[in-house]
Amino acid sequence: MGFKLLSKLLVYLTASIMAIASPLAFSVDSSGEYPTVSEIPVGEVRLYQIADGVWSHIATQSFDGAVYPSNGLIVRDGDELLLIDTAWGAKNTAALLAEIEKQIGLPVTRAVSTHFHDDRVGGVDVLRAAGVATYASPSTRRLAEVEGNEIPTHSLEGLSSSGDAVRFGPVELFYPGAAHSTDNLIVYVPSASVLYGGCAIYELSRTSAGNVADADLAEWPTSIERIQQHYPEAQFVIPGHGLPGGLDLLKHTTNVVKAHTNRSVVE
């Protein structure tokens, strides 16, 4: 069995187990497998329904001669939608809004960016022009300005110390501490036991640490421990890039980060 097929099978099995364990909360999309990078042309966006009122959005972007996937989250909030992270750029984010209108038909009224990198804030200006209120932590807003990236308009308070959590509509926002970046936030959907790890969490097929220019490698494993301790009931975990899975993604990420750190020390 090929690795790609095995990865998709694991996603399907995880979703099936969740649907059985929580039949009222989960209505997993039966329309197909989780979209992969090879299936999404740059400039297009796919939506994948995880649970009743919960979707991931998947886009792709060219970077350094390669094409990478990027995940975000959409959560229903009454007759409105909360968006977590842009679709990595203005063109993708405009396509995301169009796809949401086509498939869901509810307005996106608020959006949260989970850290300051372009795959999370690139497209904020498109959201703002569409009347979406954009939010991020003060740290993310400051770092985005320093980096020359787009800056969300509103500040999220109460997320300055490791372990801080605040309720934001249908989700809980959690600051686990520094990891992929010093400002990275985690998003949890309690009604569906869905954990969105953003770039602080890796997919299972990833074996290298990737972009760690703004990471705190020493603190990252401790931050992941905080996530595990705060959300032990999480059933569906979405990484910032690639295929979702279960809580095993947290341990896998820790292993990859520690291996990278150990290699760096040896070198």
Rank of each mutant, 00 (worst) to 15 (best):
M1I: 13
G2T: 06
G2M: 08
F3C: 08
F3G: 07
K4D: 05
K4P: 03
L6E: 09
L6T: 03
S7L: 06
S7A: 05
K8A: 04
K8Q: 08
L9F: 11
L9E: 09
L10Y: 09
L10S: 08
L10F: 13
V11F: 02
Y12E: 06
L13R: 06
T14H: 04
T14K: 07
A15S: 10
S16A: 07
S16L: 08
I17H: 01
I17E: 06
I17G: 04
A19E: 05
A19I: 14
I20T: 04
I20R: 10
I20N: 11
S22K: 02
P23L: 05
L24H: 12
L24Y: 11
A25P: 13
A25C: 10
A25E: 06
A25M: 03
F26W: 06
F26I: 07
S27Q: 05
S27F: 10
V28T: 03
V28Y: 15
D29H: 13
S30N: 08
S30W: 13
S31A: 07
G32W: 09
G32N: 00
E33K: 09
E33T: 04
P35Q: 15
T36M: 13
T36Q: 05
V37K: 13
V37N: 03
E39H: 06
E39I: 12
I40F: 04
P41K: 03
P41A: 03
V42L: 03
G43K: 13
E44H: 02
V45K: 14
V45Y: 03
L47Q: 04
L47D: 05
L47V: 09
Y48P: 06
Y48H: 07
I50S: 11
I50F: 15
I50C: 02
A51K: 05
A51C: 08
D52S: 04
V54P: 03
W55L: 06
S56K: 06
S56H: 01
S56F: 03
H57D: 14
H57R: 07
I58A: 03
I58K: 10
A59P: 10
A59W: 08
A59L: 05
T60E: 09
Q61K: 02
S62V: 04
S62G: 08
F63T: 12
F63S: 06
F63E: 07
D64L: 07
G65W: 04
A66W: 05
V67A: 04
V67Q: 03
Y68C: 06
N71E: 09
N71H: 08
G72P: 01
G72V: 04
V75F: 04
V75Q: 12
R76C: 05
R76Y: 05
R76K: 11
D77R: 07
G78Q: 13
G78I: 13
D79I: 14
D79W: 14
E80F: 05
L81G: 11
L81T: 11
L83H: 00
L83I: 14
I84W: 00
A87S: 10
G89M: 03
G89D: 10
A90E: 11
A90Q: 14
K91V: 13
N92M: 14
N92P: 13
N92W: 12
T93P: 00
T93G: 04
A94G: 13
A95L: 12
A95I: 06
A95D: 10
L96D: 00
L96M: 07
L97W: 01
L97D: 00
A98G: 09
E99F: 03
I100A: 14
I100K: 00
E101A: 13
K102I: 07
K102A: 08
K102H: 02
Q103C: 03
Q103N: 10
Q103M: 03
Q103A: 05
I104Q: 01
G105F: 04
G105C: 02
G105P: 03
P107M: 04
P107Q: 11
P107A: 11
V108S: 04
V108W: 00
V108P: 09
T109Y: 14
A111T: 10
A111L: 14
V112G: 01
S113K: 00
T114G: 06
T114N: 00
T114H: 00
T114Y: 00
T114L: 00
T114Q: 00
H115S: 00
F116I: 00
F116G: 07
H117C: 00
R120N: 01
R120G: 14
V121R: 15
V121L: 02
V121H: 15
V121A: 14
G122Q: 03
G122S: 05
G122W: 14
G122Y: 11
G123H: 15
V124M: 01
D125P: 12
D125F: 01
D125A: 04
V126S: 15
L127P: 00
A130H: 15
G131I: 11
A133Q: 05
A133R: 13
T134Y: 12
T134H: 15
T134W: 13
S137T: 02
P138W: 12
P138C: 01
S139R: 08
T140C: 02
T140N: 15
T140I: 02
R141Q: 04
R142D: 11
L143P: 08
A144L: 03
V146A: 04
V146H: 06
E147Q: 00
G148V: 06
N149V: 10
E150K: 04
I151W: 09
I151V: 15
P152E: 15
T153F: 14
T153M: 00
S155Q: 15
S155D: 15
L156C: 02
L156R: 08
E157H: 13
E157A: 03
E157N: 15
E157T: 14
L159D: 13
S160Q: 07
S160V: 07
S161L: 05
S162N: 06
G163P: 08
G163R: 08
D164L: 10
A165S: 10
A165E: 09
V166P: 06
R167Y: 03
R167C: 08
F168S: 06
G169L: 10
P170I: 12
P170W: 13
V171G: 09
V171S: 04
E172A: 07
F174W: 11
F174C: 14
Y175V: 10
P176Q: 11
A179P: 02
A179G: 09
A179S: 14
S181R: 02
S181W: 01
T182K: 12
T182I: 13
D183V: 01
N184M: 07
L185R: 01
I186T: 14
V187L: 14
V187D: 02
Y188P: 01
Y188H: 08
Y188T: 12
V189R: 03
P190D: 15
P190I: 13
P190V: 14
P190G: 10
A192W: 04
S193H: 14
S193P: 12
L195G: 01
Y196A: 13
Y196P: 01
G198T: 15
C199H: 00
C199Y: 07
A200K: 02
I201V: 09
I201K: 02
L204I: 11
R206G: 11
S208F: 14
S208W: 14
S208T: 08
A209N: 09
A209D: 09
G210H: 02
N211M: 15
A213K: 15
D214E: 09
A215V: 10
A215L: 09
D216T: 05
L217R: 05
L217Y: 01
A218K: 02
A218C: 07
E219R: 07
E219H: 09
E219F: 01
W220Q: 03
P221T: 13
P221A: 10
S223W: 02
E225C: 09
E225L: 08
E225V: 11
R226S: 07
I227M: 07
Q228K: 02
Q228D: 12
Q229E: 06
H230P: 09
H230F: 15
H230G: 11
Y231Q: 15
P232C: 01
E233M: 05
A234W: 12
A234R: 13
A234I: 14
F236P: 11
V237S: 10
V237F: 14
G240H: 15
H241K: 03
G242I: 02
G242C: 08
G245S: 11
G246A: 06
G246I: 07
G246E: 05
L247Y: 15
L247N: 04
L247V: 05
D248E: 05
L249M: 04
L249R: 04
L250C: 09
K251S: 02
K251M: 08
H252T: 09
H252M: 13
T253C: 12
T253K: 03
T253Y: 00
T253F: 05
T254Q: 05
T254I: 05
T254F: 10
N255I: 09
N255E: 12
V256C: 15
V256R: 11
V257W: 08
K258Q: 05
K258C: 08
A259R: 06
H260D: 05
H260Y: 04
H260Q: 02
T261H: 10
R263A: 07
S264T: 11
S264N: 15
S264E: 03
S264G: 10
V265Q: 03
V265S: 07
V266Q: 13
E267D: 13
E267N: 00
